[in-house]
């Protein structure tokens, strides 16, 4: 069963293509890394799949159907820097936002929603901080709150935009453990990722992207030196380092 199918996806910002002709399928219950240099269109890919930005052409299916947000089967972790953390609210309230899709118009989240939100906070090790004003959380804690919010969405497929940026090693480990738990529950997680050194360790599948799609498939097949060269182009000094690392594996 394919969870996500993307066919001929092209996205353009004012005539300039930022993603051209992307094709891939994602199997169920895997961790997938979306890899590519800055400006490769990684975030754009996620946003286009979620319907947050319009696509020029192409077809996107999730669990065999054209995706609609009201199906509530997709969870989303945006980049941490995309919001104003001085907003007057606490961690629990942010996580509760993950329940808003289930609660429905005009209604307030109920007791059950609060329980789910607290449980999500517990899963990311943040239950003590439920009532903490969000501006007082550290970067790693803010990232965990965003993860907890996605968990509270209770989705089948998760899209995460750079969840490891600006978090310490302990938080990164905690997040990876959590992602593996999700995988074991049969959920599919797509993660925009930057650190080439951890790709083989973290992900079952990769999608290599640089405006065009370079490769997509199981990590051992797609994450090759040749594909990395295609993806990162002339950045040789940087690539030689990762070459060593790729060959070591």
């Amino acid at each position: 069963m394919h969870t996500v199918e993307v066919e001929n996806l092209t996205v353009a910002y004012q005539k300039k293509p930022v993603l051209t002709n992307v094709n891939f399928t994602v199997p169920e219950g895997k961790l997938i890394g979306i890899i590519g240099p800055n400006g490769a269109g990684k975030s754009t890919l996620i946003k286009a799949i979620l319907g947050l930005i319009p696509k020029a052409c192409g077809e996107i299916k999730i669990y065999g159907k054209t995706y609609r947000a009201k199906d509530k089967i997709v969870g989303y972790v945006p980049q941490r820097g995309s919001v104003d953390w001085d907003f007057p609210t606490n961690a629990l309230d942010v996580v509760l936002m993950g329940r808003y899709g289930h609660v429905g118009w005009f209604k307030r989240p109920g007791k059950r929603d609060t329980e789910i939100a607290l449980e999500s906070l517990r899963k990311v090790g943040m239950e003590e901080y439920a009532n903490r004003q969000i501006s007082q959380l550290s970067g790693g804690q803010q990232q965990r709150v965003f993860l907890a919010r996605a968990l509270a969405q209770d989705a089948l497929v998760y899209f995460m935009d750079e969840p490891f940026v600006g978090v310490d090693a302990a938080t990164e480990r905690a997040i990876i453990v959590l992602l593996n738990e999700l995988k074991e529950q049969g959920k599919t997680v797509l993660v925009v990722h930057h650190d080439l050194q951890t790709v083989r360790e973290y992900f079952d599948h990769v999608i290599l992207l640089n405006v065009n799609m370079i490769a997509a498939g199981p990590t051992e097949e797609a994450f090759t030196m040749e594909n990395l060269h295609h993806t990162y182009g002339g950045k040789l000094a940087f690539l030689n380092k990762s070459q060593v690392m790729v060959e070591q594996k």
């Binding site: 997709v74 936002m97 005009f106």
Partner: peptide, 22 residues
């Protein structure tokens, strides 16, 4: 008052709000 929750999530995190289907 009626749209408090919707306005709140849209103000804090517009992308996430759109992702929820608002």
């Amino acid at each position: 008052f009626l749209l408090y929750k919707e306005l709140k999530v849209l103000t804090f995190d517009p992308e996430f709000a759109k992702g929820l289907g608002l």
